[in-house]
């Protein structure tokens, strides 16, 4: 199977949610293995971010240990987390405060 591909990956089937209007953050956590250039490349590929924004987010992960890389609806957030897991980045979701 090829590396994560946005056109082929399936969205998780979810239980019906009652709070669909609450925004969710996609949070990438720092780890000692993934290279900075790789993390930047993944942000560009998954979110379509330009180089500068992708680098800024990557540096936030590196220096602060985490970065909110996207905020929005739950299903889309889960889709992005699934993609980032496919690229082997430590990623989680949390409700936006």
């Amino acid at each position: 199977m090829p590396a994560p591909n946005p056109t082929t990956r399936k969205k998780p089937k979810l239980k019906p949610k009652t709070q669909t209007d609450v925004p969710w953050n996609v949070v990438v956590l720092d780890d000692p293995v993934n290279l900075q250039a790789y993390v930047t490349m993944v942000f560009k590929r998954v979110f379509g971010y330009p180089q500068q924004r992708a680098e800024t987010l990557m540096m936030e992960v590196h220096t602060q240990g985490r970065s909110i890389v996207w905020t929005g609806g739950r299903e889309k957030a889960e889709f992005y987390v699934q993609q980032l897991h496919g690229w082997q980045l430590q990623t989680k979701m949390e409700k936006s405060s």
Binding site: K10, P12, K13, H85
Partner: peptide
């Protein structure tokens, strides 16, 4: 990686 998700997401089952 699934451990980072809450159980409500059913990550173990579907992802």
């Amino acid at each position: 990686l699934a451990d980072l998700m809450d159980s409500d997401s059913e990550w173990e089952q579907y992802v």
